[in-house]
Nucleic acid binder design. Structure first.
Lengths: 349, 349
DNA sequence: GTGAAAGCGCTAACAG
DNA sequence: CTGTTAGCGCTTTCAC
């Protein structure tokens, strides 16, 4: 970053005894109408000088930055992280770089980051939206032709290409499977579902799957807006006391709910799977270990990222036109020990 | 991204009936020598037009991008992720944006990403280096005055500001604590330690702490370059068989080793903490749950990121000059159930 | 307090 | 096959 001896395309052209245009052609690999001699010569001069083109100058001229902005609701989320990796790997391979931000579940931050990325002239945006409501800015962006794809979380009005997973279907199958394995009653434990379509879909799927098996699925849907340990314990105790002599299972529709559920079971001295069947989202490391393994729904998050990037770059290059696509990738149910053994739940000792 | 009706500083100046220079002053909040009237007027025109400055053009002129590059060895690593978050939060607050890449433990990729980020004129770089060897590029960068800080992982020659954690000290204390709690023999389980100073420090600390307590600490240092489940099982069995009638504990110096160790114990039907004391790195979610909680060393990774960013931005702004700083942040030992109960190990049934 | 003009480093017609 | 020229959209002296 020394200022004096900065080497620009001008330096190179002077040393090589050619024009800047020719050097530029070389840089952009437009060798067609270029003598091999000058090509080699320019190469040598560039080598010798250690010249590196200034991308910013190029960006200004070409009005394209080869930058993709990614805004996720939480970078530290162990699941989201694979989405980011999927985006990165795909983008990197095609010569794009990725600029990341974490909205921390705040719509205000999300908007702020969208704007600052657009200001920075990113070629496109991949967003894991905080809220399922479309807002003014999104419409404006849409109108002004900003390339954007929604990953994982969706908004109610399909304005942009969207890549997500089969939350409804996978959850429905999961719950149905529990019943068909021999459980008499399946409850839902979920984190707060106010803002995300993802959680809502899983909830609806639970209701749909339970409808034919139990009287009031709403009554055994436990939602935990505060994620308080005690609430989980109370709910769990509640569920068991209200269902004596039944084989019970719980579907925890978020990793947080699953974690808290497992913890509550531990604290109440309930054994999994002897006293209680347990399954949930997602396939985190610890789910392999606890109680000999917990049955989970695994979402293809790397692929969600990859597919999002793929759609985005296709839009950017004009390879894809027309109305927004909506893609659901298939989740996988991983059966483990925690749902192995439907039995009458014993009351906590 | 419409081309026709693009609104530039020129549009604004024309509408406002002032010069581009004045608008530029407004944009950069140089209100000192500016009548309130024109200031307000320009504000209104900008509002009305919905003008947004083109950051790229500004970057080209000012030769500063307010972009920070972060290259980590693995973005999906649940620990690293907090480092990134620390960097992001700090940078965002100061108006910088973060461009991220994952070297996937490849020095070649690391170099490639460094170069492409430098080409993109990032103001500075934060790197979680793959290898402790300094290489040519690093020296070149150093000489050309590129601002760079090394986070978590270090290189042997201190070329750049470095922020890491007290790996040696924390590991030493951890092992000493195990002995003082009543364990007779403490083994080390570690992932491959070829390339990272982090792992090497922990290994050396183990040797130092064990020296006075046991004859040949090297012999009970188990390294697993392949991370194969069976190797863990064999090693564990080995350690126990060779130490009959002793209270045994294991220090797993990486999360991977800890995970595999716990799994191996499970498979061998060894109970934690009844048959075996276990502790290790890092404080991942699942360590709270397994066997009523596993004792771990928790590294302040968010702060490592934050401090790295802080140093970097200080260098960039010239608030910090002189030789590279080397900072070790303090880890915290979290005592849990897994080391609660030093007992004679029973042979696996 | 404001404007004119030059230029950041590159690309892309258009000539030749 | 190569050079000339005119910007991209902004900032920044230097005048006035």
């Amino acid at each position: 970053m020394n200022d004096k001896d900065k080497i620009t395309i001008d330096t190179v052209s002077r040393y090589a005894g050619v024009s800047k245009a020719t050097v530029s052609r070389y840089l952009n690999k437009k060798y067609e109408h270029m003598s091999e001699q000058t090509r080699l010569h320019i190469r040598d001069v560039i080598d010798e000088l250690g010249y590196r083109p200034n991308i910013i100058a190029r960006n200004l001229k070409t009005k394209t930055t080869k930058l993709i902005g990614v805004i996720v609701s939480d970078v530290t989320n162990p699941v989201t992280v694979h989405l980011i990796k999927g985006v990165m790997d795909y983008c990197t391979k095609l010569g794009y770089q990725v600029i990341t931000a974490s909205s921390d579940e705040s719509v205000a931050k999300e908007q702020e980051y969208i704007l600052s990325m657009v200001d920075r002239q990113v070629d496109g945006l991949i967003i894991n939206v905080v809220d399922y409501n479309e807002y003014e800015l999104l419409n404006t962006l849409k109108e002004s032709g900003v390339n954007m794809v929604l990953a994982d979380r969706t908004i109610n009005k399909i304005l942009f290409d969207t890549v997500t997973t089969d939350n409804y279907l996978a959850s429905k199958i999961m719950v149905e499977k529990l019943y068909s394995m021999g459980y008499d009653e399946v409850a839902l434990f979920s984190s707060d579902l106010l803002k995300s379509n993802v959680r809502l879909s899983r909830y609806k799927a639970f209701l749909a799957a339970s409808k034919l098996k139990t009287a009031n699925p709403e009554e055994i849907s436990y939602i935990f807006p505060k994620e308080r340990e005690d609430d989980y314990k109370t709910a769990l105790q509640n569920f068991i006391e209200n269902n004596p002599n039944k084989r019970l299972a719980i579907f925890a529709s978020t990793p947080m709910a699953l974690l808290n559920l497992v913890n509550a079971a531990y604290e109440l001295n309930l054994h999994i799977p002897e006293d209680l069947g347990v399954c949930g989202y997602d396939n985190l490391t610890w789910t392999k270990l606890i109680g000999g393994g917990i049955t989970v729904v695994e979402q293809p998050f790397f692929d969600v990222g990859k597919e999002s990037a793929s759609l985005l770059l296709k839009r950017i290059n004009g390879e894809l036109t027309g109305p927004p696509k909506y893609i659901e990738l298939e989740s996988k149910i991983i059966l483990r020990n925690s749902t192995r053994n439907p039995q009458i739940a014993k009351f906590p000792k």
